[in-house]
Design a protein around this nucleic acid. Structure first.
Lengths: 198, 198
DNA sequence: GCCAATATATACCATACAGTATATAGATTT
DNA sequence: AAATCTATATACTGTATGGTATATATTGGC
């Protein structure tokens, strides 16, 4: 159990993840990484095969943090509707949550990797799918327990919800104005109440 | 009137705009540009001060194309509601419109330039503001002519609408699935009918 | 069709890039 | 504590980068 290497591996990932997220894959150079970590190329290449492998690990680190948080939020007390509102509540201050990640990993990597990195792009699509699945599951359970009614399939509603949320994330990211998050989530809550009320 | 230079300047911008849009500012190298245009660095640097100035021109070219199209769409026959639906209709097949641009310039540049290029980022925010303004103006005219009622200010409603639209653009871009566009716009039309009906 | 002005191509710079081979330091085992 | 194994630092590749100085076409005015 080589604890030393595992620790530095983890340290590198944690330190480097926000950089990749903020600056993109190509926009982040190896010297950015050595500067940020205080380590040398030797250390980094000793722990990762190449820049792409590190970027992928960094993305997985970010997306797993987000997914874990969403799990946590969706595990809120109460019925399915309470869980859904716990989620919208989380996204209301999503900018705060993603601050030390360097922004929304889904949006940033999803757009950045699009034309530049197939692996990252695929990992991003996977993460997206997982989030939609988690939301859909809550809705499905709610339907089964007759806590709510949905006009479409749970997955479809989840996709619709998440699209609106991600729109708010995109707009507040691009304009650097958190009002987009706040106002859109407020409106989304109204919509959810209208649509899901039993 | 040096027609020659003006022509090549325009040619360079047109040829290069989709590349910058697809690959991002840093992700697009000067050799990408010489390859795509068939010109040499001498020709490019003879027409543009540097890479950044060219990228900015390319972005302006794309965003102006989009803004002109939006103007065109919002000039549709009929009352304000007809114009709004002409807009949602345009966005329903937005992926087709942006195909030869290399994707949505607002989203791509908005996210890419965020951490890498202040000028591009500012230009993008400006374009965003203009789009919102155009939509808001249509709504305002509709209110004045008593063609529709809005529960909030025209600008606020425009921002809300555009956030949902941009969410659909972001999701369909990241997943490469145009259903996000189609389904979200369909739902948005329902919402608009509900909210704006006089 | 010649000449001046302009526009493009060529050849070159310094620097930054991702990546590697090897040396040194640090930890682990006995 | 010695020896061994592992992890990090150093020094170095070759290549690509954005940018420039200068040479060569190409153009438009007369």
């Amino acid at each position: 159990m080589s604890t030393k290497a595992e620790k530095t591996t983890a340290f590198i990932i944690e330190t480097v993840a926000p950089l990749f997220n903020k600056q993109g894959y190509i926009g982040t150079s190896m010297s950015d990484l050595t500067d940020a970590t205080g380590l040398t190329k030797g250390a980094i290449y000793g722990n990762f095969e190449n820049k792409e492998a590190l970027a992928l690990s960094a993305y997985e680190y970010n997306s797993k943090r987000l997914l874990a948080k969403i799990d946590d939020v969706l595990a809120a007390e109460g019925n399915a509707l309470d869980k859904v509102f716990a989620l919208t509540d989380f996204y209301r201050s999503y900018d705060v949550f993603t601050q030390d990640m360097g922004g929304c990993p889904i949006l940033n990597t999803g757009v950045d990797a699009q034309g530049n990195n197939r692996l990252l792009s695929a990992a991003n699509r996977e993460a997206l799918k997982e989030i939609e699945g988690k939301i859909a599951l809550v809705l499905e359970n709610g339907v089964n327990k007759k806590e709510l009614k949905i006009p479409v399939t749970p997955l479809q509603f989840a996709k619709q919800m998440f699209t609106i949320i991600q729109g708010a994330v995109a707009m507040s990211t691009m304009t650097r104005d958190r009002k987009y998050l706040i106002n859109t989530i407020t409106y989304l809550d109204v919509l959810i109440k209208r649509e899901l009320k039993k």
